[in-house]
């Protein structure tokens, strides 16, 4: 016997599972994701720069932060020397978030998009933002 019904049913399930990403995105536009650097602190900078170049920060910031934590917590070292030779205090709240005071429009933008949940805010207090 052929089990036609069961095979067709199985194939329908397979088809749905295999093309699920397409089905889930039917008719949805590809959202543009651009973290905002529009904060008073950054706007006030004569030459906009972070502790490291933008491309490096984009892909390596998690490692840098991880490293910073270890430096402070384990080694008591509170100074970071950037690749440009400048010294920066190692501090999430006083260095990073001083400029990037807009967590929702900066950090969360990509993190939410990528479904990444950094555990920074498990210990640190998230900045109180004035504007939503």
């Amino acid at each position: 016997m052929y089990n036609t019904g069961k095979i067709i049913a199985g194939l329908v399930v397979f088809f749905i599972l295999a093309t699920l990403p397409f089905l889930l995105n039917l008719g949805k536009a590809n959202a543009k994701i651009e973290p905002s650097i529009d904060t008073p602190e950054i706007n006030a900078m004569p030459k906009k720069h972070c502790v490291e170049p933008k491309a490096f920060m984009r892909s390596e910031h998690m490692q840098l932060l991880n490293n910073w934590r270890d430096q402070v917590v384990r080694n008591g070292n509170r100074i970071y020397v950037g690749s440009d030779g400048n010294e920066y205090p190692i501090s999430l709240q006083n260095t990073c978030m001083k400029c990037h005071a807009n967590k929702k429009k900066f950090c969360d933008k990509c993190h939410n998009y990528m479904a990444v949940k950094p555990y920074c805010w498990g210990c640190h207090i998230a900045p109180k933002e004035n504007e939503a």
Binding site: P21, N25, L26, G27, N30, I33, Y113, M114
Partner: peptide, 9 residues
Amino acid sequence: KQLAIGLVS
């Protein structure tokens, strides 16, 4: 992800 979403949409 932009590329991926572009493909599947």
